[in-house]
């Protein structure tokens, strides 16, 4: 038993090592591209959920899936912005790293709003729309403070 745990720890430890090693070696441009793709998916699910909620399309049964995906994507936004991923083809402002606490506050707020949206998505449209609006506002609030088109 003890031995097993020790081996387990060892495996876990080396996995973690491998993980960090792989991470440290990834090209910042690849991290930037990755996070932009994840953010694009974020946008795609917002646009899709919005179209359903506004009655533009009749895919009501898919709303829960979009909400759930938004919850997953927004569960840890700061992880998409590790140190060193500030140079390159990015619109992220220096503040993402220089004012990290503020940035994390915005991310936390969006996570809470996405959680609330999941809960409301199963219920009536008016309540779901209200939570959707709050989530929207939280996306906008972070972009206001932390994103700028590159000069």
């Amino acid at each position: 038993m003890k031995k097993n745990t020790a081996v387990g720890m060892l495996i876990l430890g080396s996995l973690e090592l491998l993980g960090t090693a792989a991470y440290a070696e990834s090209d910042p441009e690849d991290i930037i591209k990755y996070r932009q793709n994840v953010m694009k998916a974020n946008g795609a699910h917002m646009a899709a959920a919005g179209a359903i909620l506004q009655g533009k399309v009749d895919y009501k049964k898919d709303l829960a899936y979009h909400a759930k995906t938004l919850q997953t994507i927004n569960s840890d936004i700061p992880a998409l912005f590790p140190k060193g991923s500030d140079f390159g083809d990015t619109k992220a402002l220096d503040g993402v790293w220089a004012k990290r606490a503020d940035f994390e506050k915005r991310a936390k707020d969006t996570r809470a709003k996405a959680d609330a949206f999941v809960k409301a998505a199963g219920g009536d449209t008016k309540a779901a729309l209200a939570k959707f609006k709050e989530l929207s506002d939280s996306c906008k609030a972070c972009h206001k403070d932390f994103r700028k088109e590159e000069k």
Partner: peptide, 24 residues
Amino acid sequence: IEYLDSGMTPEGDFAGDVMAEVID
């Protein structure tokens, strides 16, 4: 109309920078 109301673009992106202030 949607963009001027919530800031959402047709792609589901959200306005930032000084335009987010204009919208708010």
